[in-house]
Write a protein that binds this DNA or RNA. Structure first.
Lengths: 243, 243
DNA sequence: GTCTATATGCTGATAGAC
DNA sequence: GTCTATCAGCATATAGAC
């Protein structure tokens, strides 16, 4: 986990000889990666043992080391997989130039990812928590570029008066934090939900609530439950009364 | 880290004999706990070694084991410390019955904690990420009760029309996620800030942005930058135009 | 490609002199 | 209360038969 190693070394897929990655190898790697994601999410890099991962994958430990020479290489592959999913969601930000549509789409996508890939999100959170020993490169390149370009988009929305003048960076952090919370802290959420995971209906309600608060919070739509074009806030005279 | 051990075993402070915890012991425990918080935050429970903690505390490893018999006992003490800080912030929720004042105070307090105790927040995040092996009891008792009572408060705000009808639970999660993000993901935030931590001014701006979006998002105040009592959203006719 | 047996190194914890 | 030396256990990784 040195952090300075260059990544992507695995992208050069087409090696002349014994390539083609026999179907059996591809399948075994898939099974191992899936098991590894779960175990790394549950226990962290050091807390996970290759024995645990091998057991969950249903193979002997030595076999795991045949496919992935070291635990660190395996971990790196898992983290890179997460990052690709993250990039996929990132694109939905650009589906429209309208702030309501773009943000609704982006938030929905990120919430869906939290529900579909909670383990991946946890591995990512763990990695950032520990100062990104493996994916620091990504943070400084891809993530930094993506963020800067989207900050520019949001600034245009502000300049054209379509949303309130908030600092775009902190809006993005808010979206990341809130959506990923449903994956990273799902154990806490489940516990507060009586020990059971959120139902599909509850999750959709959470998604609506998150989207609604953020869109109303930046002045893109009226607050939930208030008529779209009606007199916006009867409670505007709230100040001082209750105190 | 069995998770089923009862907690609070340490609360029975007043043991008859050799008590009084000589000043030297108190001081050493303090130094060790501080070092432990940092190392556990950085590396997780398993990733942290007692050697690392002892080094950071500036004492021999054997000395650490003299004060804290096992690594797990030390970890538990660190987590309990975090939880007490969390409880302290929780109280600021009740400073007023006015939603604007109560939420502003609560959010500010949680943001300040993220800045003052980022390591503690990270240990907490790590613990939840790994399904709370040590503090599951707290989640099911103190946290569950606190949440239920505050949900009731928010529901009263909704019933009296002071805020929009959103689901209180998801509002709370949003506040937790967003405020704690500034501690747990501070490495990512720093990286996107050119590798430097947020300045005091930037952090205050973040705090204002977070508070503003949430309060406006639930209809408690108008969106930032719009006159408090003025015509609220000229951009209400935004739909369809740009698309 | 699979799998048992094993080498090697590290870590939590203790013994016991000071 | 402090600290050096050391033990016992465990986890990564490999050797080598099949």
């Amino acid at each position: 986990m040195s952090g300075t190693d260059r990544l992507k070394g695995r992208a050069q897929a087409r090696i002349p000889d014994r390539t083609q990655k026999s179907a059996i190898r591809a399948e075994n790697e898939r099974v191992i990666l899936k098991a590894a994601e779960e175990v790394f999410a549950q226990s962290g890099f050091r807390g996970a043992t290759t024995g645990m991962i091998a057991d969950r994958a249903g193979i002997p430990k030595a076999n795991l080391h045949y496919y992935f020479p070291t635990k660190e290489v395996l971990y790196r592959r898992v983290v890179e997989h997460i990052f690709n999913i993250w990039l996929e969601a990132a694109n939905s930000f650009d589906e429209s130039d309208d702030p309501v549509e773009a943000l609704t789409s982006y938030i929905a996508k990120k919430m869906d990812i939290s529900r579909a890939h909670p383990m991946g999100s946890k591995v990512w959170a763990n990695e950032i928590l520990h100062k990104a020993p493996v994916i620091q490169d990504y943070l400084e390149t891809t993530l930094r570029e993506w963020t800067a370009s989207r900050v520019a988009v949001i600034e245009r929305w502000i300049a054209s008066g379509r949303i309130a003048p908030i600092d775009p960076q902190y809006l993005l952090y808010m979206i990341w934090a809130t959506t990923q919370h449903y994956a990273d802290f799902n154990h806490q959420i489940d516990t507060l939900n009586g020990g059971r995971p959120l139902s599909d209906a509850q999750f959709e309600e959470a998604k609506r609530t998150v989207t609604g608060i953020i869109l109303a919070g930046i002045g893109a739509v009226p607050p939930a439950g208030l008529a779209a074009a009606g007199p916006p806030r009867d409670a505007a005279a709230r100040n001082g009364a209750a105190r």
